[in-house]
């Protein structure tokens, strides 16, 4: 009897436990890579070398960063609400990693040491909804963290977070309706399989752009990084955090970055499908990773290019521009699909 959901393929229980550990491990080990990649890339964009002191070509910089953070004092403001202050970064990080579990790296189960294993944490018939559910629970990490810090900067950052995440979540979900209607399913592997002939980025170009912009806001990237807004709010909701707890928020941020890339790849860039080539199954994860890197590069590029929005511009843009576009896109897609 399935406990969680109807799933496409079942492994034995020990494979599922192993898979949970592997997803956790892969998600965690992608973080330093993404961190280094972003800092190097930002350096290049700004005509400087980027980190190049620790290890060869600065490759050990993320390790140094994380070790430094872990070695720091676990600071807590006097008026902070202790258990919430400790819990919030955990919520943020766990929810970020949980969304990573849904991203499929290969459709058909791959043969690993004689056991067929699907290269995803979970392939559910409501996979996309689970991604959104975890993302919305993850916003509690930001909100409660800022509120429980008992600091005005943190509080303002947290309140901005609540408003911004709600506003852009709606646009993000509506932008995806086009994909869901075209694919006729909420399962992420089936959505990818629907794209074997044509990636959704072409028929769903408007949806793709809207989704991409809303995702930038959801993961607090420039030009929507008003939760942190270092020029106004010191560091926004994480002003009072230091040491390991700050590291958790930091990790969550980079997991969000990777998940955003992976999700965009899955939904719009055809996942493991390559045009005109039918590659062997063991190459699938690398194709997905390569496409994810392209999307992440694009996100970093935007960070290096655009300035921050003003707060009222951010809300106006979300509600008056993105939301109508996403709605019209969903409507047009529905009409086209029914009329065809």
């Amino acid at each position: 009897m399935p406990l969680l959901s109807t799933v496409g393929y079942y492994e034995p229980w020990y494979v599922q436990i192993l898979k949970a550990l592997v997803v956790f491990g892969v998600g965690f080990s992608l973080v330093p890579l993404a961190l280094l990649y972003e800092r190097k890339l930002l350096g290049r964009f700004q005509n400087r070398p980027g980190p190049n002191r620790v290890g060869p070509f600065g490759t050990l910089q993320p390790a140094a960063d994380i070790l430094k953070l872990l070695g720091k004092e676990q600071f807590r403001p006097t008026n902070a609400i202790g258990w919430l202050f400790i819990l919030s970064p955990l919520v943020a990080m766990v929810c970020a990693l949980a969304t990573f579990m849904l991203i499929p790296f290969s459709g058909a189960p791959q043969d690993i040491l004689g056991t067929p294993v699907g290269l995803y944490g979970l392939d559910s018939d409501i996979g996309l909804l689970i991604v959104f559910a975890f993302a919305s629970v993850g916003s509690y990490g930001v909100l409660l963290g800022g509120w429980s810090s008992a600091s005005k900067y943190s509080f303002l950052g947290a309140m901005r977070a609540a408003a911004q995440l709600i506003s852009y979540e709606i646009a993000q979900g509506l932008a995806l309706l086009g994909v869901i209607i075209s694919a006729g399913t909420l399962s992420l592997t089936e959505i990818v399989d629907e794209q074997s002939a044509l990636w959704f980025v072409i028929p769903q170009l408007v949806g793709a752009i809207t989704f991409f912009i809303a995702t930038l806001a959801e993961i607090n990237r420039t030009p929507f990084d008003l939760l942190e807004a270092d020029s106004e709010l010191v560091a926004g909701f994480m002003t009072e955090y230091g040491g390991g707890r700050f590291a958790l928020y930091y990790v969550a941020e980079y997991v969000h970055l990777i998940v955003a890339g992976g999700l965009f790849t899955t939904l719009f860039l055809g996942g493991w499908h390559l045009p005109f080539v039918d590659q062997p199954g063991w190459l699938d994860p690398f194709v997905v990773l390569a496409k994810t890197i392209v999307v992440v590069t694009f996100i970093v590029w935007i960070r290096a290019t655009l300035p921050k929005l003003r707060y009222d511009q951010l809300m106006t843009f979300g509600w008056k521009v993105l939301l109508p576009i996403a709605t019209v896109n969903a409507l047009v897609t529905a009409v086209v699909v029914v009329a065809w």
Partner: peptide, 26 residues
């Protein structure tokens, strides 16, 4: 076995409605 209802419950109530409540009470 009502997975859809469960996820929508989290998505709508926990993810949107309750965030607004928290926003106001905060």
């Amino acid at each position: 076995q009502a997975q859809f209802v469960a996820v929508v419950q989290v998505l709508v109530y926990v993810g949107a409605v309750m965030v607004l409540y928290l926003f106001v009470t905060a």
